[in-house]
Nucleic acid binder design. Structure first.
Length: 594
RNA sequence: GGUGGCAUAGCUCAGCUGGAUAGAGCACCUGCCUUCUAAGCAGGCGGUCCUAGGUUCGAAUCCUAGUGCCAUCACCA
């Protein structure tokens, strides 16, 4: 039982004893910094049960607590707020309890029930861009947070490897490629394929322009441009299993996968299972048929199959075309079911997909529920806001995207420039330096994106570089590095850093740090419940800010009293461990020096 | 037009189930490096919490209406 629960119990006892009434709940909040105390009980809500003056009531309860509760050493009442001071012993005991707990804050896996987290899921016709970066970072982080909260997690993605988009790149490569390969050009495979996607669009636009100048209506030209018709023909050939087309498709997709692998590795994300649309796009039809039998769906006269969701406040939605082919929804139904078949322990899924698809997922989840799958009750669309540029939306075809590889490289460069200027790493080898710059640059980028509430839109201005000061990744990494420096020095000085010392007094800054450490476990839980890495980021920032204040105001290694000195080193160490754990949940590494 | 999301300091963002004088960072201004890393610390400046009603002892937070921005509503993905 934590101190707050214990106090709630005691406050109820106090009210029963003094005022002879039962209090259902007690409301607490952390005491504001400008008042004395650690925890504050709010008196106002009690006035419904206890008639009287809030200050007087607060005073009586406060006195009761001080007399009856060992941990309560003092109190004061301001307006309707009872500020309670908790003893140093309580906080010191708490610290002693977590000091050697390696996985402090983490819950060990509590059941065999698994949850599947899908993220990334790119198309294979172009490189990853900033929008994918947000998706990847969010999905990865939420998966890690869920694990830390005690869930068994599978990370997965569905790779959109088939369809008209990849045919466009293939066709353009056939026409204009002159047999280029990643090897012959030295380009990353995804970049090469992406170039042909752009080339297709250029040729397509040129054809439209030519047709329009010959008097063809623009709408008609957009639909009948020869190159587009040819791409559509190619897709039909692919579906028919045409050897040449399928061969080219395999080759070009492999180029893309090789390129993606490098990007994922640099980004530091990974997957437990991969699903390919080319394997799943035919799935789902049987279940539509089954649902049709059971009256979940209905058939229109032309043979197309629909679901009526007007009772749920949505529209009618098609689930199978009149020619019997699958639409996206059909496929998503099939894929979800397939995943549970492959992994019977999966009892829920998280889909990391942009908020432009909110409607799609509402419908998908409803359909799966109506089909009667038990796990359909535990599907969650991790919907996030778009990443926009000052110029508006990013568009691959128009080349207005922020490329993921370039962005990461730029961040590394910036980190290098700042580090060189500060010049604290003269004795590092070139290799060590490069490794470090990457850690810092990526830390800045990841933190910048993850600290924002997922559902909010991010406006990214490439002209203004991501900050390295203030509420940033490098600031937090810097604090970690500082603590490591202290620990290295302390090792040299002390023999018995692990001894547990009996202290009685605590510096105000030490107490604040301990309070902040205490919040870590519940923060992980909250972040898991809300699928929000931003909560972890904000917590870590608060912890680090508190530590820096402590660091700058209180001497650690310079402390004369041995016991205090050892305690402070241990406290600093614990703070650095929590920073590392928390950043691990965000997929951010921490450096020993910087 | 229907539906959903968002709106807090010049800029970027916090603000948990309603609670004290709405908090950080950047930018701007003052101090602090012969003692543990100044990517730091201490402080200053800066707000009609989009607007108007309502619920409440109490509203940035909940409800209603409106305004603005974004998304979505296809036998597209």
């Amino acid at each position: 039982m934590n101190i707050q629960e214990a106090l709630a119990q005691k406050v109820k006892e106090a009210v029963t004893s003094i005022f002879k009434v039962e209090l259902p709940t007690v409301e607490f909040q952390p005491t504001r910094k400008d008042f004395a105390g650690d925890i504050t009980a709010v008196i106002f809500p009690m006035l419904r049960y206890v008639k009287g003056n809030p200050v007087q009531i607060g005073g009586q309860i406060g006195q009761f607590l001080k007399d009856e509760v060992e941990e309560v050493t003092d109190f004061n009442v301001v307006k309707g707020f009872l500020n309670i001071t908790i003893s140093n012993e309580y906080y010191l005991d708490f610290f002693e309890g977590i000091r050697n707990q390696q996985d402090f804050g983490f819950v060990s896996q509590s059941s065999e029930e698994a949850i599947m987290v899908e993220y990334s899921s790119p198309n294979t016709n172009k490189p990853l861009h900033l929008g994918h970066v947000r998706n990847n970072l969010l999905g990865y982080s939420v998966a890690e947070i869920l694990k830390a909260s005690g869930k068994k997690v599978y990370k997965t993605q569905i790779i959109n490897d088939r369809g008209i988009h990849i045919c466009k790149s293939m066709l353009a490569w056939q026409r204009f490629g002159n047999g280029e390969t990643p090897e012959s050009t030295g380009l990353k495979g995804d970049k090469l394929v992406g170039n042909y996607y752009v080339a297709f669009d250029k040729a397509y636009k040129a054809e439209i322009a030519a047709m329009v100048s010959n008097g063809v209506d623009e709408k008609v030209a957009e639909k009948e441009a020869p190159i587009l018709l040819e791409a559509q023909e190619m897709l039909r050939k692919w579906e028919a299993g045409d050897e040449e087309v399928v061969g080219l498709w395999k080759t070009m997709n492999q180029w893309v996968y090789d390129g993606f692998e490098i990007t994922y590795k640099n980004m530091g994300v990974d997957f437990d299972q991969l699903y390919y649309e080319s394997n799943t796009y035919l799935l789902g039809k049987d279940f539509v048929e089954d649902g049709l039998q059971r009256g979940v769906f209905y058939k229109k006269e032309d043979g197309s199959v629909w679901i009526d969701l007007t009772e749920e406040g949505l529209d009618e939605k098609i689930v199978l075309r009149s020619d019997g082919t699958a639409v996206y929804m059909t496929q998503d139904i099939g894929t979800a079911i397939q995943r549970v078949k492959d992994n019977p322990d999966v009892k829920g899924m998280v889909y990391t997909v942009g908020n432009e698809q909110d409607y799609h997922f509402k419908v998908l989840f409803l359909i799966l529920q109506k089909l009667g799958f038990s796990w359909a009750e535990k599907l969650y669309h991790l919907s996030y806001g778009m990443v926009d540029l000052p110029s508006g939306k990013m568009k691959s075809r128009e080349g207005t995207v922020v490329d993921a590889d370039e962005l990461m490289e730029d961040m590394t460069q910036t980190a290098a420039a700042i580090s060189e200027e500060l010049g604290k790493l003269e004795d590092y080898s070139e290799e060590e330096k490069q490794e470090l710059y990457k850690v810092i640059g990526l830390g800045a980028l990841k933190y910048y994106i993850l600290k924002v509430d997922p559902k909010k839109r991010i406006l990214f201005n490439p002209e203004e570089s991501v900050d390295f000061q203030g509420n940033t990744g490098p600031f937090i990494q810097y604090t970690y590095a500082r603590i490591q420096s202290i620990l290295r020095k302390a090792e040299e000085l002390e023999q018995d850093l692990d001894s547990s010392q009996k202290l009685t007094d605590l510096h105000e800054k030490e107490k604040e740090l301990l309070k902040q450490l205490q919040l870590f476990p519940e923060t992980i839980q909250l972040a898991a419940d809300n699928y929000s890495p931003a909560l972890i980021a904000n917590y870590t920032y608060d912890l680090v800010k508190e530590f820096n204040s402590f660091y700058q105001n209180v001497s650690i290694l310079g402390e004369q009293d041995q016991n205090k000195k050892i305690f402070r080193v241990q406290l600093a160490k614990k703070v650095s461990e929590v920073i590392k754990s928390a950043f691990g949940l965000l997929g951010i590494q921490v450096p020993d020096r910087m």
